[in-house]
Design a protein around this nucleic acid. Structure first.
Lengths: 340, 340
DNA sequence: ATCCGAAATGTAAGCGTTGACATTTCCATT
DNA sequence: AATGGAAATGTCAACGCTTACATTTCGGAT
């Protein structure tokens, strides 16, 4: 049987309330008592029961995190940012993997609710209107990361400006002499991010007077194999179309595209330039090092936590709601060739 | 205010105990009552409070997971395996990142203890004797993954046979005509896995009558940059030593080594063969695809959970303790050249 | 010495569940 | 109709902690 607050109290010759106070409001207890109780705690190896505390104060010092998939390569950085910032505020994070399923994501909310989380960070490709009922009923703050809000419920969204970033990526390519630029975009139907990046691509072309050709864009679900397959389809359209560069909506897809090109005996960047999106840790590990736009995943996570902490403190379920754009950055490496 | 079990009870005209029973022992309640209570729950959107339940039954349906670092590339797979198997048993996993620090790892135990976890999966480079006091005092089962037990406390360890696997890797290299094989090993001092793999390397050489030359081995801490630096040191020793292949103790270090080689204008596998260890998802994404030994991370995690579940049920803190070797597998890809 | 307010500590109820035990209901026997 | 026992339900304390409120202690001002 673990040692409880009462055991400590008895051993120290005080009441449980006093022990509780040395834990939570040490300023309220006599310095002598404080020392005594503390040393007793030490001696007895007392560790407060977070569950009991949670029940008593009616909320745990915990925030929930719902992610679409643990194995998504961006997950690690995002989690790191969230975890570290949470710790700074004495919060614990409870993880929930929605496995890219809408139903599981929805379940996630009530699951986390059962754990009395003080707030929830939600990451997903998409937040649609079917979330509204749940969201509305939730009496704890929710922050979105890496997603655009599309539901009616006002929710803050922490992300980069995907349109702008992709626009700049195209501009970068153009500045290197490219005019025939393909796109491997995110699956449109179920994903707002994919749409935003595609729009950025279109705007980029338009801005430089390059006509948009739908044949130059293929779609995928952000994974390596999707990138590979999309590149393959692009290649199959030759010689109908010709490309000097491909812009992928995610690093993983960019790697897939590169692999596909390599398998066809094409070299990057000599024969084809490829850019990605995300700047995953692996982007700098591969050959050629991938030119891409960096998303500050850790900052995005940390920022979301900060917002949550504030919202929790204010007891508003919606502090300053809106889109919070975090700065992206084009990381120039080796996967783009300059055309004269 | 969330709806509680008593609210449901009132609304359904039964006692809280009955509601509790429909939740936990539906067989004990009249089918009519069952339906009624259930529909009331539905209607009121009742979600049981896991915290209160945990306090009442004196343990949460939760297991703790302590990992050395979230950003370690193998983490995702391991977590996935653990999470999925846990779910199957109605368990939730609570994550704790020790950030590669011994102190934090130790803290992890009491932290998780505070959450009344029913068991703990511990992953780390090293479990030394200083863990013993804590481990011994813990009244919940603990399973190790990816680590060898070095502490006195008997703990089950789920991992691959590192010695054997590295041995086979060397054998593979030899079968491809290599005799001058370098090694990028794990930092010896603080890491048993590193030692095991080095031993496998030595045994491999010995088995094939190749003299062991300490100048051919360099050390790193498993990260990309360590691999890069170690490869650099190896290269610097030329022409004192000559190498046709390098065996890295981790995929990430193998990638670092490859980058280093590339930066020196050397091609893999034409100029140098490289093998890794882990078979991370990225191993198949890079060019050349990395030949490596696959660790079944997900299975390792799942297996550990299964053991834990059993130990929890048996209420032994140590069911069948010992080393559980999971099958590894050499994955032959493109980073090794056959020498005639 | 006396009194007062502040400081320190104690008391006890309550957080939402569960589970041992007690009570009631119901049905099959007789 | 009476009875026994199983089935269904209810009562209440307990889980470990916090917190509002009550009580005691203390030090200074009178």
């Amino acid at each position: 049987m673990r040692v409880t607050i009462r055991d400590v109290a008895n051993a120290a010759g005080v009441s449980a309330a006093t022990v509780s106070r040395v834990l939570n409001r040490p300023d309220l207890v006599d310095s002598e008592t404080l020392d005594r109780v503390r040393s007793v705690m030490e001696m007895m190896e007392y560790h407060p029961n977070a569950i009991a505390r949670g029940l008593s104060v009616r909320r745990s010092e915990t925030i929930g995190l719902i992610v679409p998939g643990i194995t998504d390569l961006f997950f690690n950085e995002l989690y790191k940012g969230i975890d570290q910032e949470s710790q700074r505020h004495g919060l614990k994070v409870l993880l929930y993997d929605s496995e890219h399923s809408r139903e599981r994501a929805l379940e996630g909310f009530s699951f986390l609710g059962g754990y009395q989380v003080a707030g929830i960070i939600f990451t997903s490709k998409l937040v649609t209107e079917d979330y509204d009922p749940i969201l509305q009923r939730l009496d704890i703050p929710v922050a979105l990361t890496l997603t655009q809000r599309t539901s009616k419920t006002p929710l803050p969204a922490f992300r980069v400006d995907d349109v702008r970033a992709t626009f700049e990526l195209v501009a970068y390519l153009v500045s290197r002499g490219h005019r025939q630029i393909g796109m491997i975009a995110g699956k449109q139907s179920d994903d707002s991010t994919g749409q935003l990046r595609l729009r950025g691509y279109e705007q980029g072309l338009q801005h430089f007077g390059i006509p948009f050709d739908p044949r130059l864009v293929e779609y995928g679900q952000y994974r390596f194999d999707d990138g590979y397959a999309a590149m393959q389809r692009l290649l199959d359209k030759q010689p109908d179309i010709t490309l000097t560069a491909v812009c992928a909506a995610a690093d993983e897809m960019a790697l897939g595209a590169i692999r596909c090109l390599n398998d066809h005996g094409l070299r990057v960047p000599e024969d084809m330039s490829v850019v990605g999106f995300d700047d995953l840790p692996i982007a700098r590990m591969v050959t050629p090092r991938l030119t891409t736009v960096a998303q500050p995943f850790a900052d995005i996570g940390a920022e979301a936590v900060r917002w949550l902490v504030e919202a929790i403190a204010d007891n508003t379920t919606s502090a300053e709601v809106g889109d919070y754009f975090l700065p992206h950055r084009i990381v120039e490496r080796e996967s783009v060739r300059t055309i004269m």
